[in-house]
Amino acid sequence: MIITILSAIALLILAFAYTVTLEGIARKIEARIHRRCGPPFWQNFIDIFKSLTKHSISHGFIFDFGVLMALGGTIATVLFIPAGNLVVFPGLDNVFVIIYLLAIGLLGMAMSAVGSGNPNASIGIGRALTQMLGYELPFMIVLLGVFFHFRTSSLSELAVLQNSGGTYNVLIMPIGAVVGFVSLMGMLGKKPFDTFIAPAEIASGPLVEYSGKYLGLLMTQHAFGTFIEIGLFVNLFLGGGKTIWEFLLKFFLVYFLAVIISSIMPRFRVEQAVKFYWKWPLILSFIQVVIVVFIMGRRV
C-alpha cells in the first residue's frame, strides 16, 4: 500500500517533470530547425507556473468542473502507465481502461470549453472529436492484433513479454508500429493534425477562453496526456523498458521523432485528416491485423 502510494507520487512527479522538460526541448529543437536559438529548455515550467500565478476568469460551474475533470482524469490515467520498472498497479493497467479513462479528460475538457460559450471553442471541440474518430480507429485495430498475439491487454505484461521474447513489437508487427506512430501524431495533436487548435483561424480553439490558472492546469493536463500517449506507444511497440532509464530514453526518441516530423509539416483540414486516417493507416492496420490473426497466430 505504502509502496503503491510512493510509486504513484514518484510516477506523477516523473511524468510531469520529464514531459514538461521534453516539451521545452521540443521547442528548442523546433527553433533549431527554423535556425533560431529558441527558448531555454525550462521555458515550459516558467509558462505553467506563471499561468498559475495570474488572475483568471470563470464562465460558471461547468467551466471549472470540466477543467478539474480533465486534469483529474488524466492524472488518474498516468498512474496506469508503467514507466520501465516503475509500475504502480501491475496487472491492472489494462489498455482499454487507459484509453477510456483518458476519454474522461477529453470529455471534461470538451465540456468546459463549450461551457465557456465561445463558438471558437465549440468548433475546436467538434474538430477534435472528429479527428479522434480518425486516428483512434486504426490504432485500436492494431491494438486488437497486439492483444490477440500476446493474449493480454495489460500494458506492463506486454512490455515484459516483449523483453522476455527478445524482440520488440516494432519488429514483430512493423506495419502496425508505423500505423501506431501515425495515430500517435494525431493523438498528440502535432502537425499536420493540429487543426483543432489552429490559433490563427479559430483562436486556439478549445483554449480560447482560458486564462491564468485554468490555462496552467490545462497545460499540465496536456503534459500528462503526452506522457500517457507516448508511454502507451513505447510500452506497446518498443517493449517499455527493463529499467526506468531505458523507458525514458525510448520515450525521448519517440517524442523526438514526432517533433521532427511535425515541425516540417503543414496542416490538414479536419476532413482531410479523417480521410487520410481512413485511407492508408486504416488499410495498413487491417493488413497488419489480418497477418497477425490469420498467419502469425498467437504467441506460443
Binding site: 500565478t53 488572475h55 483568471s56 460558471g60 478539474l68 488518474a76 491564468g212 492546469l217
Partner: peptide
C-alpha cells in the same frame, strides 16, 4: 479518478480565485 480529481481541485483552490463573468 477521485484522487486525480482532488489533486487538481487542490491546485485549483490554491491558485487565485477566478472572477465570475457572464457568458
Amino acid at each position: 479518478f477521485a484522487i486525480g480529481f482532488f489533486i487538481s481541485l487542490f491546485i485549483f483552490m490554491r491558485a487565485k480565485k477566478a472572477r465570475q463573468v457572464d457568458l
